[in-house]
Simulated scan of single mutants.
Amino acid sequence: MHTILVIGGSRYFGKSLVTKARDAGHEVTVLNRGSSVPPAGVGHVVADRDDEEALRVALGPRGFDVVVDQVCYTPRQAAVARRVFAGRTGRYVMTSTMEVYDPATLPGRTAGGGRAPAAGPVPVPVTEDSLDLAHLLPTAPHTDPARAYAEQKRQAEAVFLREPAFPFVSVRTAHVLGGGREEFTGRLAHYVARIAAGTPVDVHAVPYATSFIHHREIAGLLYWAAGQSFTGPVNAASHGSLDVTGLCELAARRLGRRPRYRLVEQGAAASPFSFDRAYAMDNGRAAALGFGFGRVAEWLPGAITEAAEAAEATEG
């Protein structure tokens, strides 16, 4: 049995992670600001992770075998966590994102002579060693929200990597789908609604494939990563990348409709998952370490059905 602290863990696959660890017999505690109560049998610490002193007081003398950080979005949050949990945990797992690889957001600057994250063409599918974040220079947040999200996640990883205070893992997750109403981003619902209504889907003329993972699969991978001994980044993506038109075709078959498309110019905004650049992920490291991934083609039709049923229930 391990003592596991989950920072966040209040919705979607975070909830699945918490219940999975609890049901396996681990002593699980959730840390959040009190906006939601964890499930039965799970401890609860109420604190604002951005308030370092309040976080220390709320934790008291407690330590944990593993901390799984679901909601580390900025380098400041990472710096607070690194200081507070130094000496309190034997392992720290941060939920990161595949957006750290997005070539549209990558800087080209490093410190100390390290390899630049954007140096040369990024191999596709993208491997973990495509980025050298330990030498990433701190930067101010970008004004564009999408670019800021990717850059802040890179910077957060870099904080843990530059001055290691404990064994650290960053799980760079692909686009998470499935769960019907639980999938709060509404990205899959976007396609279901448009195709059902006969509304054109905005796509690039030559959309690139991207990576996906089922919500229960990423919960399982985070739980698995918490119990392993490896460190560093690991990509989390189901086998088989898919472009936006392939996604639309699957949705159309479920809905009994033909998808309609409207082309957008290179560099222009399009529907979710339509990309004019390549950065689908290679999941070889996690697979070699022993995690068994599913296939997008096997679980995505069911996720589309869930999204369609959720939409039908809302309309009813």
Rank of each mutant, 00 (worst) to 15 (best):
S241N: 11
V46K: 13
A140C: 02
D51H: 10
G34N: 11
E163N: 12
V122S: 12
Y279A: 08
K20N: 08
E298S: 06
A21C: 09
P125W: 09
T127A: 12
R262S: 10
A156E: 00
A116S: 13
D202K: 14
C248S: 11
A297E: 14
V57Y: 09
A47D: 07
A54T: 11
A54M: 05
P141N: 01
G316C: 04
A268H: 13
Q152K: 01
A119K: 05
I218V: 15
E312F: 08
S96F: 05
R194N: 11
V192S: 04
G8S: 05
V122Y: 00
A116T: 06
V42E: 09
G25I: 14
A196F: 09
P164F: 13
P125S: 07
A287D: 05
R257D: 02
G114C: 08
R216F: 13
G120M: 04
R181T: 14
P167F: 09
A81G: 10
P117K: 02
P39D: 13
R277A: 06
I195Q: 03
L300Y: 01
S16C: 04
V66M: 11
V192G: 04
E128D: 06
I213L: 04
A24K: 13
Y101M: 03
L250Q: 09
W224G: 15
V37Y: 12
S271D: 15
A225K: 08
E249H: 05
E298W: 03
E183M: 06
S241V: 10
T127I: 09
S229Y: 00
A297H: 07
A209G: 10
A146W: 07
L136F: 10
A116W: 01
V264S: 05
T19S: 13
Q77F: 03
A252S: 09
E27Y: 12
T105L: 01
P61G: 15
E151K: 02
L133K: 00
L161V: 12
R82H: 04
L188A: 00
F275R: 11
R82D: 03
H2D: 11
I304K: 00
A313F: 08
G178S: 05
S238Y: 03
H204Y: 14
T127E: 06
D69K: 00
R147T: 13
Y191M: 00
A189C: 00
A40T: 15
A307Q: 02
G112P: 02
D144I: 01
V124C: 12
A119V: 11
V93N: 11
V192P: 04
V201M: 03
T19M: 09
N235F: 12
H175S: 10
P121H: 09
I304R: 00
A24Y: 12
F230D: 03
R285I: 06
V28Y: 15
A251G: 05
A280S: 15
G292A: 15
L133P: 02
